[in-house]
């Protein structure tokens, strides 16, 4: 059993650090390595919208399934990074991420108290796709590992800080208009994602 686990870990680690063909790139000129990975989720609008939508959903549904959702995001994010390194096509992730942004932000706006299973499914999908879309340019092994580490932490930080800020705002104010405002903001994110998804789909 331990041997099998060790073999699985070696394969997964190899998949994570094996450089693949040139695809993703640094979102800001002059920033490379870990920091390029760290800002990548915020510099790529499909990832940003999907992660913001997820952050709003987790924040508005807090404390329901928060820890399982966060762990799911991390696990599927790692799985997505591994899948990207194994050669998945990141080009296909843009419309999918935008559709997920519509779903997560739409759920946050219309039905934040929805079913926990739906919440976990959306979280897993967002984490996995962001992981795939984080595939860096080909390069030295160390640079690839640093960039992927930054992307992974950047993804989790964006979800954590968004959801934590929203849940803290809700707990501290407990005013109806705060909840209304946050749900309207979620609807705005979903609306922007709908239009960007339409553009991405028609362009492809």
């Amino acid at each position: 059993m331990h041997e099998r686990l060790r073999a699985t870990a070696i394969v997964a680690s190899a998949a994570l650090v094996t450089p693949t063909a040139t695809r993703a790139h640094a979102p800001i000129e002059g920033i490379e390595g870990f920091y390029a990975g760290l800002v990548h989720p915020a510099g790529s609008y499909p990832q940003l919208l999907a992660l913001l939508g997820l952050g709003f959903l987790l924040g508005l549904s807090w404390p329901r399934a928060y820890v399982p959702a966060f762990v799911t995001c991390a696990v599927f994010g790692l799985a997505g990074i591994a899948t990207g390194q194994l050669g998945a096509e990141p080009e296909m992730t843009t419309p999918a991420l935008l559709v997920l942004a519509v779903v997560s932000a739409g759920m946050a706006a219309l039905y934040p108290s929805g079913h926990s299973v739906a919440l976990l499914v959306v979280t897993a999908a967002v984490g996995g796709l962001v992981g795939i879309a984080s595939t860096p340019d080909s390069g030295p092994l160390r640079a690839t590992v640093m960039t992927l580490s930054g992307s992974f932490i950047g993804m989790l930080a964006l979800v954590f800080y968004t959801s934590a800020a929203i849940s803290a705002l809700r707990r501290r104010t407990e005013r109806a208009y705060v909840e209304i405002g946050l749900r309207i903001l979620s609807a705005w994110i979903a609306a922007i994602a709908v239009m960007m998804a339409a553009l991405a789909i028609t362009a492809s």
């Binding site: 739409g106 706006a109 219309l110 749900r183 309207i184 979620s186 609807a187 705005w188 979903a190 609306a191 922007i192 994602a193 709908v194 239009m195």
Partner: peptide
């Protein structure tokens, strides 16, 4: 105000 921007999009 939630329905309007969603459907508008």
């Amino acid at each position: 105000p939630v329905i309007f921007p969603l459907v508008m999009a």
